[in-house]
């Protein structure tokens, strides 16, 4: 357990109708980046949605800096300092790049992040500021999804499968950007199936199996244990990929 826990999840349960998707999930994360890994359908995205207040049927406890978040609507969770980059990005198809950023920024300009800094971090978005969100490439869409969440000046950034569907070169750029955020002091909770992305970004790994946190491990251990990779992720080990 990290000594400086900022997010404490205790006995979190979530349901879709009769399906009991999260079963007594408990973990804590500190300010260092943490990855949650696991196969498809293990409840990783459900966990993100539950923390963000985007699911109705949940119980248990989610505390952020001691403040209980469970039962609060998403906008209050966001106000507490959490920002979310969802799986599939969930951009607004009616809005342009610029409008996505205007939607979130209140124009007070007091925060660490403003539109100019976003365009510095992702120059590609500045070039495409008038394009509709759906006209962007996968990588640009992911940048935009991250950009709009950064405008909230989050203390904790939750990212669900940010590398999904992206080309390797784009993933490298993304990893650099996320590392930069982490170095600036933004805590990061990363949900990933792409093990190389997860191990690049986070040292501490929580493994989710069938709605539970089944194990805790580190990037080193995972990288050197092909058997664990197979068990936890159902993927062929990294070494054999290369």
């Amino acid at each position: 357990m990290p000594p400086d826990a900022i997010l404490e999840v205790k006995n979190l349960n979530a349901y879709y109708g009769p399906a009991h998707v999260l079963q007594d999930v408990s973990f804590e994360i500190g300010s260092e980046p943490t990855a949650i890994i696991g196969r498809n359908g293990m409840g990783k995205s459900t966990l993100c949605l539950s923390i963000m207040g985007m699911l109705q049927k949940v119980d248990g406890s989610v505390r952020f800096h001691g403040e209980e978040l469970l039962g609060k609507p998403p906008y209050k969770v966001a106000a507490a300092g959490l920002a979310f980059v969802p799986q599939g990005r969930r951009l607004f198809q009616s809005l342009t790049v610029e409008e996505h950023l205007r939607l979130v920024s209140n124009g007070n300009g007091n925060g660490r992040w403003n539109t100019e800094r976003i365009y510095e971090l992702f120059p590609r978005l500045a070039e495409r500021r008038r394009s509709g969100a759906m006209q962007l490439s996968g990588g640009e869409q992911q940048m935009l999804a991250i950009a709009r969440s950064l405008l909230l000046d989050p203390k904790l950034l939750i990212m669900d499968e940010p590398s999904e569907g992206l080309a390797p070169a784009v993933i490298d750029h993304l990893i650099d950007a996320i590392r930069g955020l982490s170095a600036e002091g933004t805590a990061i909770l990363l949900v990933e199936q792409n093990l190389s992305v997860a191990t690049e970004l986070a040292d501490r790994h929580l493994v989710m199996v069938a709605g539970r946190i089944a194990a805790e491990t580190t990037a080193d251990e995972l990288e050197n244990d092909p058997d664990a990779q197979r068990r936890y992720l159902g993927v062929e080990p990294l070494a054999e990929e290369a």
Partner: peptide, 10 residues
């Protein structure tokens, strides 16, 4: 487009 996501953006 996506009401929940708007809320998650504060």
């Amino acid at each position: 487009d996506d009401r929940d996501m708007v809320s998650a953006l504060g």
